[in-house]
Design a protein around this nucleic acid. Structure first.
Lengths: 204, 204
DNA sequence: TATCTGAATGAATGATCATTCATTTGCTGG
DNA sequence: CCAGCAAATGAATGATCATTCATTCAGATA
């Protein structure tokens, strides 16, 4: 049954919807105040809900943080896969789509970038964060290497696609970081240019 | 007067030495527990000193953190400059030295990398961290672009050295992050290979 | 309409932590 | 050897924060 919109202050929501609302609020708070300074009250206030709501839906603050990180990581991966698994696209078209995706507004969102790097910053100290952050790395790297393999001149024997894929991944990470650090110096357009300069080696 | 080593528990040290000792302890703690979870007691215990010592020498926890970040940032810059300002080195030799430096044990130190990225993670929320982290970026980028300018074929008019320097900087940032994330998958040797693959465009 | 269910609330609790400052201790010049 | 001083100490303080749980309330059911 679809829920009729209601003016009442307190309204029960499906569990999944409440959880997503809280995750969105968490992203906003971490982007604004940082991971270290974000309190439960920041999050619940930002969501317009009461003090105990996080413990009700996530058991603890730490579990909410973990789910928030997972949300951001999985969101990237979904977009990536939807391009890679699209059989209608040629190898060239896939590459173009991936690069466009990596520097699209969907990914270059300073709030989500801030959240991503906030958790990355704690990776050495928190093995679970590390696990979630690197969860899709191997799969993405393999798929990118395969894509590159289909694009190189077949007579170029000693081109290392795996290494080149690692490079692309590191380059985009670095460019995202630059954009987070100083969006004025590194614009999205410029970052995309840098990425294509790197990839030109492959096409030419 | 040189200080004779002493067994006594409590010994006054020159201010600068005490401050450095506390900064070193802070680096160790942030690498072990993360920026968010590092307490004053962690730091003072790790340094083998008493509770109030940080407030005595740095006024507050926040100022100690800022000085720690500055320490890590400046240390990189000093090593960079000592290569760049060495008139005895040719352009090729400088490039080789810079790459060797970027992936040397002096820089690829997982404790310092952890500290660096821990602060980077808070950059969106803390303008002062942002300022310190990006403090040397423009200078380094200009010097790298100049170095590249001296290495390209003079007839290659449309090679954008600035852009290429931005790419090198982003690539190294990304590779450092990879090393911090999974040193088993991305070894220092492999990272250096990736960097040289990027730079090969320039040399060939 | 009356009853029931579980989602949501928020005041209260207890734990953690940065900071303070009265006191102690080691060093140095007289 | 002692007085004076600056460095260092650490118990005490007060502030902040995550979590709890008794209570409230909205909507569904009969």
């Amino acid at each position: 049954m679809p829920q009729a919109p209601s003016q009442t202050r307190r309204r029960a929501l499906p569990k999944a919807a409440r959880r997503e609302q809280l995750i969105k609020a968490t992203i906003k708070c971490i982007a604004r105040k940082g991971l270290a300074a974000t309190t439960m009250m920041d999050i619940t206030r930002s969501a317009g809900l009461s003090t105990g709501i996080v413990n009700l839906h996530f058991k603890s603050k730490e579990l909410l943080l973990v789910e928030t990180l997972r949300h951001v990581a999985d969101e990237y991966k979904e977009g990536f896969d939807s391009i890679m698994l699209d059989d209608k696209l040629s190898a060239q078209a896939k590459l173009r789509s991936i690069v466009a995706y990596d520097f699209s507004a969907r990914i270059i969102n300073r709030n989500k970038l801030a959240v991503w790097f906030a958790f990355l910053g704690e990776v050495k100290a928190c093995p679970l964060y590390r696990k979630i952050c690197s969860r899709h790395d191997d799969d993405i790297n393999r798929k990118m290497a395969d894509l590159f393999q289909g694009l190189i001149d077949s007579h170029d024997q000693d081109f290392d696609c795996e290494l080149f894929a690692s490079g692309y991944s590191a380059l985009t990470d670095g460019l995202w970081l630059d954009i987070l650090l100083s969006p004025s110096r590194t614009t999205t357009r410029k970052a995309e240019q840098v990425a294509w300069q790197y990839l030109s080696e492959l096409i030419a």
